[in-house]
């Protein structure tokens, strides 16, 4: 019980469980602990919202690299092609 009580006020542990819940899964006990904590903690409730948003933004950031159209320079490609050619000619 004292364990549960300290959890109710422990934002460090709560944010840990929030992250774990978002990317994995919680045990039954962890779920209860977190729910109780969030009922009484506005700051961590805001943290949940922000953390989810950050995950979405990261996904977007990763998924849209074509926005800044990255390609290799022709010179580098040329040099690479020559290296490959040399390797192929060895055999």
């Amino acid at each position: 019980m004292s364990n549960l009580k300290s959890m109710i006020y422990n934002c460090r542990q709560a944010t840990f469980l929030i992250e774990k819940r978002m990317l994995g899964s919680l045990t039954f006990r962890e779920r209860i602990e977190l729910r109780i904590h969030l009922t009484g903690c506005d700051v961590c409730t805001l943290y949940v919202k922000q953390s989810q948003k950050i995950n979405e933004m990261i996904k977007q950031l990763f998924k849209k690299p074509e926005n800044n159209k990255v390609t290799l320079e022709d010179e580098f490609k040329e040099a690479m092609q020559q290296k490959i050619q040399r390797e192929l000619n060895k055999n």
Partner: peptide, 30 residues
């Protein structure tokens, strides 16, 4: 006790609306 330290506690990102997050500038900061 594991409480948020005052100076690090989350505060709302933009004028109370999280909409502002969808923003090019925000992306760059991220």
């Amino acid at each position: 006790n594991g409480h948020w330290k005052k100076e690090y506690a989350p505060v709302s990102f933009s004028m109370g609306s999280e909409e502002g997050l969808y923003n090019k500038e925000f992306n760059q900061i991220l």
